[in-house]
Design a protein around this nucleic acid. Structure first.
Length: 447
RNA sequence: GGUCCCAUCGUCUAAUGGUUAGGACAUCAGGUUUUCAUCCUGGAAAUCGGGGUUCGACUCCCCGUGGGAUCACCA
């Protein structure tokens, strides 16, 4: 029915930091356009000179680049000011707008639209039929003066000039739509198809995610170590679902399966746990080197310290990886000292070394036995081989009674990777040193 | 307040008149060679309330209730 090329746009204003909800709206526009072989436009709505800030505009570009949403064209709305003025003049001549004598706050004259006071019904791709009696809108303001057109006029003119066929935007705009349709009609422009996407709620599940909430700025997520794929995957699934049971989708896969009809009407909340889980799924797709690069910034300071060993770092990276959902998890490990024992001998709490009902004496015996086994061992130094020689004794003497003290002697912590992994990472020399140190202090404790 | 919109497990959601109301996150239990993590298996957990329509309602209609948006010389 319509062979016209599909054109969508994202139209953020640089009056604040670009937030995560914006990524989702932008992505729906992007996905819809790409899927239909159409065009995706980024339009910076910078007509509010008072509140615009260049840094905010730059951040918009950064976000788009980060998540990989390439736009085919980019405009600044302010570039079109002459065109807007021209249309305004045309409207003035046709009598569709007029200079109002009275302004609301006595600030001089304004230009108002002469409202035909009719019923406007439009079809929203997500919400369905919506009809509004525009009488309630009154003769709304479309320009401060002949030189300064305002939002509604600018949007309508730009969308038309840029050939926008589908306006996909946040639901807060549904109330604006009748006004814009009125303007389209007055100008003889074809009305685009509208789709108003539901809000994203804050973690409380009640209020709309607003600038007041923490972590709403899109770029903060980059800073906190979320992968763009994970964030995009996560955001796409708020208020939309492909209808299958697959949860993890790449950007390109999302583009393939996205559909406006599947976008739901109600708002959806922001669930950090799920985002964290998704981030891990995407972390799993990283190569060894990529993961290393991912966590490396956190180890910058450590690298200058004498205890730091690149050799050890290489060995523990997989261990760290298994315990990481988000970068902040690694940060936590460092802050809590969970990685210290890989680099320096830990202080051992003599009471904690003993497993459950074990005694100091039996613990010493077990440790001594393991010490001897390791001393005599001359095979390959890897956890599987090590396990083969130690495990028979552990099974015979009691796994917990042998393995817990061993692990604790090596790490000095309640929680750590298994003893064989520790053995491999630490190396024979260090291992024997730590075990014998611990045997000595246990003996002192009994004396 | 006027106008408009929305409502399924704790959370994100699937099911567009007929399913034991499905999946995921989180949670709980068990297992995977001691702890943590990973992984596997299993469990608990929802249709806001009331009326209709229908042989049959999560699904359609009406009324409540709750939530949200918007009512700018901002976008």
């Amino acid at each position: 029915m319509n062979t016209k090329q599909i054109v969508t746009r994202m139209a953020p204003s640089p009056t604040g930091r670009f937030h995560v909800g914006g990524i989702r709206t932008a992505f729906y526009n992007y996905a819809f356009a790409r899927q239909h072989g159409g065009k995706f436009i980024l339009r910076i709505e910078d007509t509010d000179k008072e509140r615009n800030r260049d840094e905010y505009e730059q951040e918009i570009y950064e976000v788009f680049k980060w998540v990989g949403m390439e736009y085919d064209e980019v405009y600044r709305q302010s570039e079109n000011i002459h065109r807007h003025q021209e249309i305004l003049k045309q409207l003035l001549e046709s009598g569709d707008v007029y200079e109002a004598e009275e302004a609301n706050d006595g600030n001089g004259k304004v230009i108002r639209f002469k409202n035909p006071n009719k019923e406007i019904t439009f079809h929203d791709e997500i919400l369905g039929e919506i009809s509004v009696d525009t009488t309630d809108l009154g003769d709304f303001v479309v320009a401060r003066n002949i030189e300064s057109p305002l939002y509604h006029l600018a949007v309508v003119v730009d969308d038309h000039d840029e050939g926008v066929t589908h306006v996909i935007r946040a639901q807060e705009h549904v109330a604006n739509t009748p006004r814009q349709i009125l303007l389209h009609e007055a100008l003889g422009f074809e009305t685009p198809t509208y789709a108003h996407v539901p809000f994203i709620l804050g973690p409380d599940g009640k209020k709309k995610l607003s600038k007041r909430d923490t972590n709403v700025a899109a770029m903060d997520y980059k800073q906190h170590g979320y992968l763009p794929e994970a964030l995009l995957n996560f955001l796409s699934f708020i208020g939309w679902n492909p209808g299958t049971e697959q949860e993890v989708f790449s950007k390109d896969q999302l583009v393939q399966v996205f559909s406006l009809e599947q976008v739901q009407k109600g708002p959806g909340g922001f669930n950090l746990d799920k985002l964290s889980w998704l981030n891990k799924q995407w972390l799993n797709t990283l190569s060894k080197q990529e993961f290393r690069d991912y966590i490396d910034p956190l180890f910058k300071e450590l690298q200058d310290m004498p205890i730091y060993s690149e050799d050890i770092m290489v060995k523990i990276t997989p261990i760290i990886r298994e315990r990481t959902n988000v970068l902040s998890d690694v940060q936590e490990m460092i802050v809590n000292g969970e990685l210290d024992y890989y680099f320096v001998n830990p202080k051992i709490d003599s009471e904690k070394v003993i497993w459950k009902k074990g005694t100091v004496e039996s613990t010493i015996i077990h440790l001594q036995k393991v010490f001897d086994i390791i001393t005599d061992y001359s095979g390959d130094w890897n956890k599987d081989s090590l396990k083969e020689v130690i495990f028979p004794y552990a099974e015979e003497a009691g796994k917990g009674d042998v393995l817990w003290p061993l692990r604790f002697s090596l790490s000095g912590r309640d929680k750590s990777p298994d003893p064989f992994t520790l053995l491999e990472v630490l190396g024979k020399e260090v291992v024997l040193e730590r075990i014998s140190n611990n045997i000595e202090s246990l003996k002192k404790a009994t004396a």
